[in-house]
């Protein structure tokens, strides 16, 4: 019902890439009768069939939106979630609801040929419901830094921008390897990341920020906690005495002073004593998009200022 096969010139974009892809396409096009559809297995092992290349894409999460824009799909993106505020151009797209409550009507009215969702945030029910309504949904599921590179590669493949994806991944890999290389022999300071004020919530094993701390040459004091976002009492923080404290904030310029003042009460903490309490933009450390590399470099600068002084 939602497939509009005749709209898309079959094969045109694939011609001239390589004989192997050409062969692949020929086989594909015969098997599904010229409809230029493609069937791929997504990151949660579902089979997804959609018109290739997709011309009307809906993104259900900010990281997906950022990846799509970085691949230059400004025209193809027709709908984004209300959380998608980066890049600036995302604000001109139709909003299709929040992470947790989709506006299915809006999605139907956009008539997308492909929806991209994330396993980390969107629920299986949403994807099932979209399927019931006749839409194909490709699901990515990033769990750590290196998964993000995979996400970009997969999305590149899905939207026919493999070359652009490769370029971005190469850049990210180079920059992250530089950070890892420079920090690997340095002492690893103990880090506490504060992501919530009341109650005090931090990042445990399995979170992106935890992965970034490790890659940037630090040691997360909550890195062995099984919960992704464990709650931490002040006593526990004092006991584990972090040498660096980072306050993750949606608005780094916001109430920095107030949260900072709170910390100055605990003068015995090495981080407070040595003036190593910092703010960091939460979008850069918890959003699995290409921008996470900036978060990684920022972490490295905070953890090892002498090495990364510019």
């Amino acid at each position: 019902m939602k497939n509009l096969p005749t709209k898309f010139p079959p094969l045109a974009p694939a011609l001239g890439t390589s004989s192997l892809t050409l062969l692949f396409f020929l086989v594909l096009s015969f098997s599904i009768s010229y409809s230029a559809e493609r069937t791929l297995i997504d990151e949660v092992k579902r089979e997804v069939t959609f018109p290739f290349p997709p011309k009307r894409i809906v993104s259900l999460a900010p990281n997906i939106t950022e990846i799509l824009f970085s691949l230059g799909l400004d025209e193809e993106i027709v709908g984004v979630s209300i959380h998608c505020t980066f890049p600036e151009k995302a604000n001109t797209k139709v909003r299709i609801g929040s992470y947790i409550r989709l506006d299915f009507e809006k999605i139907i009215s956009l008539n997308p040929d492909l929806i991209i969702a994330t396993g980390a945030g969107n629920t299986r029910d949403m994807v099932d419901r979209l399927g019931e309504l006749g839409f194909s949904t490709y699901v990515i599921y990033p769990k750590n830094f290196s998964d993000i590179l995979k996400n970009i590669a997969h999305i590149g493949q899905v939207v026919n921008r493999e070359k652009e994806a490769k370029g971005i991944i190469e850049g990210l890999r180079k920059r992250s390897e530089r950070v890892i290389e420079l920090t690997k022999d340095l002492p690893r300071p103990k880090v506490f990341i504060q992501i919530g004020e009341t109650p005090m919530v931090t990042v445990g094993k399995g979170s992106f920020a935890d992965d970034l701390i490790r890659l940037a040459g630090g040691e997360n004091i909550a890195g062995k906690e099984k919960e992704v976002y464990p709650r931490f009492g002040m006593e526990e923080i004092l006991k584990r005495s972090p040498e660096v404290i980072m306050i993750s904030s949606m608005n780094p310029k916001g109430d920095y002073q107030k949260v900072f003042q709170e910390w100055t009460r605990w003068k015995t903490l090495p981080a407070v004593k040595n003036g190593r309490v910092h703010m960091i933009d939460s979008d850069l450390i918890d959003r699995p998009s290409p921008r996470i590399i900036e978060g990684l470099e920022e972490f490295a600068r905070i953890l090892h200022p002498e090495t990364f002084k510019k």
Binding site: I100, T123, D125, R129, E132, E227
Partner: peptide
């Protein structure tokens, strides 16, 4: 909800608030 590290459990909170968007 407080001890589980499975994020899906948090969907329970939304379910507890009532939701008709999956009606079929």
């Amino acid at each position: 909800i407080s001890v589980s590290r499975r994020e899906e459990l948090h969907t329970i909170l939304f379910w507890l608030m009532g939701d008709f968007s999956f009606s079929n």
